[in-house]
Amino acid sequence: NMVHPNVICDGCNGPVVGTRYKCSVCPDYDLCSVCEGKGLHRGHTKLAFPSP
Rank of each mutant, 00 (worst) to 15 (best):
I8A: 10
N1L: 06
C26T: 01
D30S: 11
P27V: 04
H41E: 02
N6K: 15
G18S: 04
I8F: 07
V7I: 11
N6H: 14
K22P: 02
Y21K: 02
G43W: 10
T45P: 08
C32D: 00
C32G: 00
D10G: 15
S33V: 07
H4N: 15
V3L: 10
V16S: 03
D28C: 06
P52V: 07
M2N: 03
D30F: 15
G37M: 08
N13P: 01
S51M: 12
P15F: 05
T19N: 09
N6S: 09
N13F: 10
H44C: 05
P52K: 05
K38T: 06
V16G: 01
V3H: 09
G43S: 11
D30I: 10
R42K: 12
A48L: 12
K38Q: 10
V25K: 09
L47A: 12
N1V: 04
S24V: 06
V3W: 06
C26S: 01
I8L: 13
R20A: 12
I8N: 12
S33A: 13
V16K: 02
Y29W: 03
C9K: 02
P5D: 06
A48I: 15
K38M: 06
T45M: 08
C26R: 02
G37L: 11
G11K: 10
V17C: 14
C26L: 01
K38E: 11
V3F: 13
V25S: 10
S33P: 08
G11F: 05
T45H: 06
V34N: 14
D30N: 15
M2R: 05
C35L: 01
K22L: 04
L31W: 03
N1G: 03
C26Y: 00
C26M: 02
C32E: 00
R42D: 15
M2H: 01
G18D: 08
V17W: 07
G39N: 07
C23K: 01
G14R: 12
S51V: 11
L31F: 06
V16L: 03
N1Y: 03
F49H: 14
L47Y: 07
G43M: 14
C12L: 00
C35E: 03
I8T: 15
H44A: 02
Y29L: 04
K46V: 12
P27G: 05
G14H: 12
C26G: 01
L47E: 15
V17R: 14
V3T: 10
F49C: 12
V34F: 07
S51E: 12
G14W: 03
V25D: 10
S24C: 06
P50K: 12
Y21N: 03
G14M: 09
K38A: 07
K38F: 09
G14E: 10
C35M: 00
L31G: 03
G43D: 15
C23E: 02
Y29S: 05
H4E: 14
D30A: 12
H44D: 03
E36F: 07
V34R: 11
P50D: 14
S51Y: 06
K22D: 01
Y29V: 02
A48K: 13
P15V: 11
N1K: 15
R42F: 13
C32Y: 00
G14D: 08
